[in-house]
Design a protein around this nucleic acid. Structure first.
Length: 519
RNA sequence: GAGAGCGUAGCUCAGUCGGUAGAGCAACGGACUUUUAAUCCGUAGGUCCAGGGUUCGAGUCCCUGCGCUCUCACCA
């Protein structure tokens, strides 16, 4: 192995990576130390390091009594803090399981090892061999016998007490956030555990996961503006999917009786604390079930997911506690509407009156659309939940089967928690003629052009082949993770949320797109 | 997309009425063998987001642009 040090610069932060950031005084200092480490015969970028153990696992091995050597251990981690006390050095290192203090004693190390230690900086990755040791103040430590440099860091870390606070810095350089804000890492690991749990719950009930296309020629399955992209060889525009629904239903037509997908969907809408342009959706379909089947499934998925990250079914969220202990109340849309709006949703005159009071435009608007707007305005915020809202007005549910005894009501539920829509499920519509009719006429609020654009003729053909009556469920995974981990912004549960590129004025001039560069 | 606020050293933040750019941490040099944001002495460190304007003089006032945050709108 050749220990070659390139001075080619670090990858630039600049948008487009056009030029490396100019090394600052801290980086220059660290480069000198890196070169000295190499001179001493050590690889400043490290090598395979076998046999190290998670810090959380070795901490309990510490002797109770100060001043006696415990078992030998090997750990690896990043230097987070340093303290000097004469010819002793205390280093706190961190791995993804926890932190531990290292103790370097001048009297117990060779000159070479001591010098190597002095070349370390905050943020470097190191491995150590040593013995578990409790200091006189009782701190669990490792008494270091041998130091191995695993990666010299060239970047100056954030301030040690306040840490990195600037939200923009934390989002643009998420790795900094992950290193210095423990909760960020824990929350993203919880996200992984939740998703793993969802897959286990579904697998235990006989569901299989299948992958469906992200590139659609028709963006269907939901009412949202899609992203447009272009396929060069076919010379055709394509849309990034806004839902998983229509392909999973095609799979059901094909005989895949219990199918789900956890996948990224893309909606070209605004960005705020609960919306990211790309987000992760679970959709699950169960043949020969209905929306009640999916309510039970929803409860199981969420209760299991919570169990995967904590012991309690109660979650601390902002200023209150959310209790996920099942069963969750199931309230009809109509009764909640009457309760919070103060009139029957079937009383068209009262509904129009209420809408006018709230300055919602009413001219030429279908009464069910007004009902829905009033519900969103007056009811949803009050649904602290978890609560299943069931039996929606049919006209706002174009993919849903109607109740047999009341065609104005659709067999649909939405699960609300803290005013947020967490899950949405239907008894799926499998009548091709009705489906075509609903596609054509009842995509509420959409201009004719747009609603026709969403007419998926191939999907109608699929329904003609015959899709079993089924329950279908959609859960926004990001929001689920938010609620279960107490996050108040969707950006807390997405490792790399979308941000506008950061550019200085000068770079902006350089980066100006040219006509020739666009294709 | 609209309104409001913010952008100063690597980081966290001050900066008065428009008059030479400040602190803490981090860095660098030094003291200290049990520290816990160690302490103590010393040194160095700035494209005040970018561009323009007003002014004898701009971090500060005005205009334009960029980014972020919050609220609203769209949406899940």
């Amino acid at each position: 192995m050749q220990i070659a040090i390139s001075d080619g610069g670090i990858p630039g932060r600049a948008a487009g990576g056009m030029s490396a950031a100019k090394p600052n005084r801290f980086e220059l200092e660290r480069r000198k130390k890196r070169d000295r480490i190499a001179e001493l015969g050590h690889d400043p970028y490290g090598q395979r390091f076998d046999g190290h153990r998670p810090i959380a696992e070795v901490r309990p091995l510490c002797p109770e009594q100060p001043g006696v050597h415990g078992p030998k251990v090997r750990v690896a981690g990043r230097i987070m803090l340093r303290r000097k006390a004469g010819k002793l050095r205390f280093y706190d290192i961190q791995d993804w399981t926890g932190k531990i203090q290292l103790l370097f004693s001048r009297g117990h190390l060779s000159d070479e090892q001591w010098e190597l230690m002095t070349l370390l900086d905050l943020g470097d990755l190191i491995g150590v061999d040593g013995t578990m040791w409790r200091t006189e103040t009782g701190e669990v430590s490792i008494f270091v016998e041998k130091l191995t440099v695993l990666c010299k860091s060239l970047a100056q870390p954030p301030e040690k007490y306040h840490g990195a606070r600037d939200i923009e810095l934390l989002l643009r350089r998420r790795y900094i956030d992950l290193i210095y804000n423990r909760r960020t890492l824990e929350r993203l690991l919880d996200r992984t555990r939740i998703i793993e749990s969802v897959r286990r719950t579904l697998a235990a009930r006989g569901f299989v996961e299948m992958e469906t296309p992200v590139l659609h020629s028709i963006a269907g399955g939901a009412a949202a503006r899609p992203f447009v992209t272009h396929h060069n060889a076919l010379d055709m525009d394509l849309y990034l999917r806004i839902a998983l629904e229509l392909h999973l239903k095609r799979l059901m037509v094909g005989g895949v009786e219990r199918v789900y997908e956890i996948g990224r969907v893309f909606r070209n809408e605004g960005i705020d604390a609960t919306h990211n342009p790309e987000f992760t959706m679970l959709e699950a379909y169960q043949a020969y079930g209905d929306y009640h089947t999916m309510m039970d499934l929803t409860e199981a998925i969420i209760v299991d997911a919570l169990g995967a990250i904590q012991d309690s079914l109660k979650v601390e969220y902002e200023d209150g506690v959310i209790d996920f202990t099942p069963p969750w109340p199931r309230r009809t849309y109509a009764e909640l509407f009457a309760e919070h709006v103060g009139c029957s949703m079937n009383d068209e005159r009262a509904v129009r009156e209420k809408a006018r009071e709230l300055e919602i435009p009413t001219d030429g608007v279908h009464p069910d659309v007004l009902v829905n707007e009033l519900f969103e305005e007056l009811v949803e915020d009050k649904l602290s939940g978890p609560v299943f809202v069931i039996d929606y007005p049919a006209s706002i549910c174009p993919l849903t089967k109607r109740k047999r005894d009341n065609p104005r009501i659709a067999e649909r539920f939405e699960l609300f928690v803290r005013g947020m829509e967490l899950a949405n499920a239907y008894t799926e519509l499998n009548d091709p003629d009705l489906q075509e009719e609903l596609f054509r006429t009842q995509l509420a609020g959409l201009p004719e052009e747009e609603s026709m654009a969403r007419m998926d003729h191939d999907f109608i053909e699929a329904l003609k082949v015959g899709m079993p009556p089924a329950g279908g469920l959609g859960i926004g995974i990001d929001r689920l993770v938010m609620l279960l981990t107490g996050a108040r912004s969707i950006r807390d549960v997405i490792a790399f949320p979308l941000l506008r590129p950061e550019r200085s004025g000068k770079q902006r001039d350089d980066a100006k797109p040219t006509a020739a560069g666009r294709n």
